[in-house]
Design a binder for these strands. Sequence first.
DNA 1: GTAATATAGTTTCTTATGAAACCATTTGTC
DNA 2: GACAAATGGTTTCATAAGAAACTATATTAC
Lengths: 175, 175
Amino acid sequence: MEVDERSSGEPGASAGAGRDAGPGSLPRAELDLSQFLPYRLNRLADRISDELERMYAERYDINVAQWRVLAWLSHCDELTAKKICTYTNMDKARVSRAVQALEDRGLIYREPSVHDQRVHDLHLTPAGEELLASLVPEAQAWEAELVATLSVGEYRDLFNAMGKLERQLERIGQG
Amino acid sequence: MEVDERSSGEPGASAGAGRDAGPGSLPRAELDLSQFLPYRLNRLADRISDELERMYAERYDINVAQWRVLAWLSHCDELTAKKICTYTNMDKARVSRAVQALEDRGLIYREPSVHDQRVHDLHLTPAGEELLASLVPEAQAWEAELVATLSVGEYRDLFNAMGKLERQLERIGQG
DNA sequence: GTAATATAGTTTCTTATGAAACCATTTGTC
DNA sequence: GACAAATGGTTTCATAAGAAACTATATTAC
């Protein structure tokens, strides 16, 4: 019932009819959002994120920022807040709050780094590992269902395209 | 210098090494975020959104919500807040605020619908059209630069994949 | 060694956002 | 036509997030 690329509500239908036949009909700047990559990508990502967030929140009472910290820890076993910032593109305040919340709940623990007193090394606690052991398969199953309509090739190509876009974004940002 | 699908900082490198050789080495749930679609999609969309937002904000002092309203109006010439909500997936409060801000700045105007007194029909003012005439080409140029590394086929496939994912999301949501 | 600068992380402040309450109008039911 | 439900939109309230100020440690220049 929602909007997809072709049946995007009015736009397809009224794009022509909508043209103002009125007085000063200057050549109107028109943007077809359904064909505008940033918009499409954003809306899709938002919807996916909403779904997952609901799942995390309902069943485990963690938010997206916390989830990301946990997921990276599942991967690295030892991390610092700074690294999480760069990996996830999240603000350091946001990471700081997520880390604190997770520590309060006993899902991770911090120890001051031996080399640098400013830094805290982050680790999962057993409770944290346990939570992940339950959450991760669920998340993966959900993802699998989401991409079920894509062929293996389409799936691979999608990741390739995202990789290219990320690299290009880097390039643009610097240039 | 940032994270891309293969050189994602620690994960690739320490995934193996990070394994805890310690005592109770239970089979650890591990999630490779760089291969997790929701995460990748979200991070990419966020970065793109950040870039564009900076552009809108710096040069035209409008935020994403306002931009979306304007863009849809460029397309439809006559809209209601409700429709914008469904097209953009934005909360109605957010849309309401965006519309109000745009009206205050004289970029759009509202008139009560003849058929339904609850509804306001939204239209661009000449000033709004003028702003779009300047902004839209810039946005399109930026998008063109972003996707410059994709072939025509890759670009088309990307949109196809997004379409499939959106439809699947619908299906999952309902089921 | 000491002063200046940079860095990791926290806290404070402000703003944006979503949820829910709310108001006005419209639609449906009897 | 009157009353109940639904709908479009706004406002209020609570919360999350980013910006900037701040603290503590580390690094660099001299």
